[in-house]
Each structure stands twice: as structure tokens, then as C-alpha cells.
Write a protein that binds this DNA or RNA. Sequence first.
DNA 1: CTGAAAGCGCTTACAG
DNA 2: CTGAAAGCGCTTACAG
Lengths: 364, 364
Amino acid sequence: MAKASTVYDVAAHAGVSIATVSRVLRRPADVRASTRERVLDSVQQLSYVPSAAARGLAARRTGVLGLYFPTLDAMEELEDAHFTQSTTVGVVVDMPDKGEARTPNLYFDEVLRGSELEAWRQGFALMVGVGRGKNPADMVNDIAGRVDGMAVLAQSVPTVPLEHVSRRIPVVLIAGPRRGDDYDHVSVCNTEGMRALALHLIERRGVTDFLYLAGPPDSPDDAERHAGFVQALIERGLDPAHSPVLRGGFSRLGGREAAEQLLVSGTLPRAVVCANDQMALGVLDVFTVRGIAVPGTVIVTGFDGIEAGRQSSPRLTTVRQPMVDLGRAAIRAMLSRLANPEQPPISLRLPVKVLLRESSEGPE
Amino acid sequence: MAKASTVYDVAAHAGVSIATVSRVLRRPADVRASTRERVLDSVQQLSYVPSAAARGLAARRTGVLGLYFPTLDAMEELEDAHFTQSTTVGVVVDMPDKGEARTPNLYFDEVLRGSELEAWRQGFALMVGVGRGKNPADMVNDIAGRVDGMAVLAQSVPTVPLEHVSRRIPVVLIAGPRRGDDYDHVSVCNTEGMRALALHLIERRGVTDFLYLAGPPDSPDDAERHAGFVQALIERGLDPAHSPVLRGGFSRLGGREAAEQLLVSGTLPRAVVCANDQMALGVLDVFTVRGIAVPGTVIVTGFDGIEAGRQSSPRLTTVRQPMVDLGRAAIRAMLSRLANPEQPPISLRLPVKVLLRESSEGPE
DNA sequence: CTGAAAGCGCTTACAG
DNA sequence: CTGAAAGCGCTTACAG
């Protein structure tokens, strides 16, 4: 790791100008084969790695795309605090049911994978920021200075810093509601998905009385899903007012608390429709322990399609969002905007899929 | 998104020199309060976002750290190909057991989280590259040009490009074996962990005949774990030659195939010790279907501590690696090297923890 | 506390 | 096909 070599070193070593070195790296076809070979050889010998900073400054594009997500979950849990043991190996009996799963944010993981996939595929690197510690405004600003465009989970960034940043680079909003007409936006068919699920329960499973378990009051996704639910009831002549709504904050714990509360109340609905999978799993946790048969006594459904819902027993009927596609679509929208800054705002709604599994389809 | 403003614009707007603008942003204390206010005001009004490229070039550091991981698993599965449906909602019956879990690489996810956590905490951004499409050499080179230092999953990058890159920036190897003395290196106590687990099985569970299910032949992690296993047998006077070894390639499918093969052979060992969790889960899959009692008839153990092993039934006894800590340690090693380039190579072994769960501790 | 000026390492018209 | 030269937007001694 001596002094890193530069175009100048390579040029001198190969006996050409720095312009030629640059061309060999960027448009090799424009350079005579013999010179190209010579330069490439020097690159190897000198272990030359081009500086992206210099490149980005000169070319006025960085080749990097950004992705910013807030931290919705307790990351502290991930810090492996208990690993501060000083011995090499510890042996412990690991009791079941020590709270939440350790992988809280599969949603983010999949969106990240999709973004990454698409970005690299299109020849861009991806810079990821997950909100934590610093405030969103600072982080977004920091990322914005480093990239050609960025995607942001809607609602994770206050309007002011978002506007600030969007004056410099294109910003794509992921999920949530559209924010005016100023941003490109990709999201999923929340309303339609929940409506389809509710219609299925009414038509095929003959459900007439529901409990709806909602997420946080400020979640636009939650609002859309609830709207779809209500819509289905109305379409089939059921009065939404007869289906109570509880809130579970999108967490597994919230789902458990709601289920306990329900049990205390004494009357069970035929189906508990949850606004996301985490809460539905929490409900299942409690029902399992209390010996309430699912779906025999109560049907339980979720929304999202996270992996844990495929491994629960009974497996969870849910509405699967195309999370990977969401990430990919965000990147594509960004690149499309970059290529054509003047095009009208993009607003994409990705299709969802109702997955019928044993938590709704089993024996009565 | 008009023309992005620069230091010059801000300087002119605030009536100061560009040096002062720079100072306000980097060392605010060095600037008189009134001037500072004025500049900050201009920054807001002009929506000024500093260019990281220019900054990186001038300051000779980018403030970004890199992380490169190969793709060990079938990412194609993640492409949501089935979502190319054109309708907004589809309803399908989702049958159980459609192969692998959709979240194959939790190991990477956790290392990533740890790296990210530590990087941002230390004031650095993180750039992530997951090998895919392009060849590792190109990706690593690309990332190297953009960062101040990078961490790489050992074995994921051939020696030549790794050396090339390490001549420019510090490289930290994650997991795997050390490569000479040239790189900083963080890994976990594979040998000690597997040894402790095997000792437990021998001493507390009275196991004397094992089947060892190994990973890929070229995996150094696998080799270390196997060494720990053999060591435990020898220490307790058991002949390792009496414990057959099968290979399962670290995949769930490989675990299933091995289990089938075992069943065909007709004789079951008292315990199947697997070199990772995925394979152990595959073994459990088959045993469950075939009605082989675990741990009654056969004990099954894994290694890694992935989430799925906490949700299987029976839950999987395993050796948990501190994956988040691994990521954090890699970043710390990198920063330490950056701060002190001449220090001797770092080689960290993080402790592991044997987690006893029902797949080994249940009723006989 | 503030400014003038050099320089970071590339890319990209523009000539030839 | 190749080179000379300007310029990208910052930071950082160096003066004052």
C-alpha cells in the first residue's frame, strides 16, 4: 500500500498521454490494440485503481445510486451484546420463545436485494443508508452528495430535507402515499390486495364477522389496506361498523396483545384480518398457546408475505408484496429519470398476490 | 433539479470566500458565529449539497468503506419472476414445501448489518457489493476505487485482484483462513465451537457413534469445524474413523440428500452433526417425514445459529456465530489500519456460543 | 477569523 | 488514433 498510482504514473510507464490511459479504460475500442495492450500491462504492473472521486468529479456523475431506509425495528437487539464474553466458547441452554425473531426487517432486506441487483446490473454501484444514530436529514444529505440518484422509503424523511436533496438529484419514493406530483414513486396494490383477500374470505369461506387488526395510525400502507378491507365488506353487503378494529402497531408483540385482549373480551370473530404478517404471527402465537383452533375456530390472515409466515404452523394466509421487484422498480425509475430528466413523474403500482395457506384454508 | 449549486454559488450568495464556506461545513468552530449563520442560511436557500466526489478528491479520502460478498446462493429465486403478471391481484393456493426458504443468506444479512452499524457510527458510509453478474475481480476493483478501505469475504476473491486492490487501500478478510500475513483478518472460533458441541454430546448425552455431515471440500470454515469435531472424539478416546463423513455442500437440499442416503444405508448413528444449519434443517426435513424421532432416535445439530433453526421443530441445537459482531469487527479493523497503516496485521477470532435446543436435549 | 491559490486525479471536447 | 489543456468542485496549508 505504498503511494497509490495515478493516471500519470500509468501514462509515463506506458509511454502515452493520460488521455490515452483514460480512453483505454473507458472506450477501449477507440485505442489501437497495441497501445491498449501496453497500457493495460502498465495498469497491472502498477496496480492502478482509478479514483472514483476524480472520475466522478470530471465526468459529473458518480455511477452510484443511493437507497435510504429508516430503522423500523430494534436494531439494538442485533448488536450481539451477549457476545462480549471473553472466552472462546460458551455453552448455554437456549430456551424457546425469547421474544421476537432476530430478523425483524425482511421487508427491507428484500427491497435492498432487488435494488442492488438492478443497480449493479445496470452498471451502477449502490450505497445503502439505514437510518440509525444520525438523523434522517443528515444521512440523506450525506448520501445525496455521493450519488447520482436516490430511493427513499416514503415517510422516512421529512419534507424539507427531501426537497433540499431533490433539487440536486432525482429522488424516488418507495411505498407510502405519493407526495404531490414532485417525485417518482413506486408502491404496491395495497388496497386491491386486501380487498381480494377479504372477498375470498367472504365468498369462499363464508366469513361474515371480522376483527381487523390495524397498524400504526400514521401508516399510509395501513390506511390503504384498511380501505381495501372496508371496500370488500361493503361490496358484499356487510356493514363495516360491525367489524371492530384493533391496533397492533405492525409488531408481533402488538399482535399478541391484541389477541389477548380479544380473548378477554369473550367473543371471537370468525376471522382476524391483520394489516401485516408480524401482527398475524403474534395472534397465532397466542391462539396456539390458548388452544384456539386456527382456522377451525378463527381464521387468521396477514399481509406482506414474509418468510416467517411460511414457516409458522399453521402457515399464514397472506398477501404477498413483490418486495424484490419494488427495489428493482425504484432503481429503474431512477435511471429512467436520469436518462430523461424532463419526463412526467412516474407512478408505479406493482401487483400483489393473495397466498392461501392453512391459516385460512384448513379443516373447519 | 436545476443546475446544482456549488461552493462558489454559496460563497457569492453569502459574500464570503469559498474557503470560508468549506470551513463552515467542516470545522464550524473556526468561523465567527455571524458569518457561519450567514453561510448556513445561503446553504439552505440554495439547496446546496456538497459533492462527495470533489470533497474526496481534495481531501484524499472518500469517507466510504466497502464490503464485498460473493453470492453463495440462488439469487434468481429472488427476482419475483412470477410477479410479471399484469393484473393487480392474483389469488393462488400456496402449497407447502416448495423447496428452499426464500431468505437463503441470513449470514450475509447479519454481517452486513453489523458493518453498516459500525461504519455509520464511525462517520463513514458503507458501499455494498454482492457478487453477481460481473466477475469478482471487476467488482472488487470498482468498489476499491470508491472507498477508503474494504472488507471481503475470504475466498470470494482470487488472490491476484485482491493483491492488486490491497496495494491501494487496506483490505480486511472476513472468515475463512488467514491468507499469509498480508491482510487483516476477522473470523470466528470454528474449531473450538464444534469441539465444544461434540464434547457436550459425548459427555452429557452419551453419544458414541456419529455421522458428520460436512460442507464443500474447499471451505476452510468447514475444515476447521471438522477438525474441532475430530479433536473432541480423540480427546474422549473415540476413534474418528468409526464416524463416517458425508458431504452436503452447506445447502438444505444437500442435507436432505444425505439424510435419504443415510436411511437407505439402514443403520442410524446416535447423532448427526452438521457443519452448518442449512444442512441440519434438511436432515430434519427428511427425518420428520420419515417419522424418525429427533432427538429420541437421532440427535441432529447444526452450526451458525440462523433464525430458521430457532423456528424449526424441534428447534435446532447449534453453534451460534456472532455474525453482526463479525461485520462490526471488520469495520473496526479497517479503521484501525487506516489510522495506523504501519501496525502489525490484525487477526481476530470472535467467540462462539453453543446453543442447546430440543434437537439434542429432548426426551430420549 | 478570513482569503488567494494550488492541487487532488480524472474526463472530454478540440486539434491534429 | 493520440495529445495538450481546460475544468470538474472541493480542501488545505499559507499568509495576513
